[in-house]
Amino acid sequence: MINYLYLVAEFFKTGLFAVGGGLATIPFFYDIASRYDWLDVSTISDMIAVSESTPGPIGVNMATYCGYNMGHSIGGVAGGIFGGIIATLALVLPSVIIVLIVARFLEKFKNSTLVNNAFEGLRPAVCGLIAAACFDVFKNACLNLELYKSSKDIAAVFDIKALVLFAILFVLMRLFKKLHPIFIIIPAAAVGIVLKM
């Protein structure tokens, strides 16, 4: 029982101090692994891989996986399910409380020139951050930088299958603006399996 309390306390702390999204939680998991025997470093790299290959926010996936493992070690499958749920709730609780406070604050000051000017600067900056994220995902999905480093052949950089798929999907999205992203993601997964990408 006491282990569940530690679990909740650790994930609450992670949720409270990991600023900047899911990947910011990873250093906290290494810290937890160094202090408790229910999490070890090799599990963390598994967790990162599983989290990145399943849908959902990475921080949440990590909390559920970690909570399940810990709970399973003391209470079997039922203990695991319970551990996964409480670890996840503990992770999101601090940000829900903080965002509620910030939302109230923004509502109160929404006519303030100062706050509006701040957002006037923030919106293009956020746009830049997301463009950078896009560049990273593109690099990962459509280019073979490792292959280029080993072969030094410039043509090897381009993953032709991925680039063609990228172009087709992008044109589809521009043509059918209301198309739900799910109808882009599922066919892409099927193409990936068929073409062994």
């Binding site: 999905a141 999907l169 882009i184 993601i185 997964a189 193409v191 990936g192 399996i193 990408m197």
Partner: peptide, 8 residues
């Protein structure tokens, strides 16, 4: 395949 879709 999904990563390509996410980039697009």
């Amino acid at each position: 395949g999904i990563n390509v879709a996410v980039a697009a």
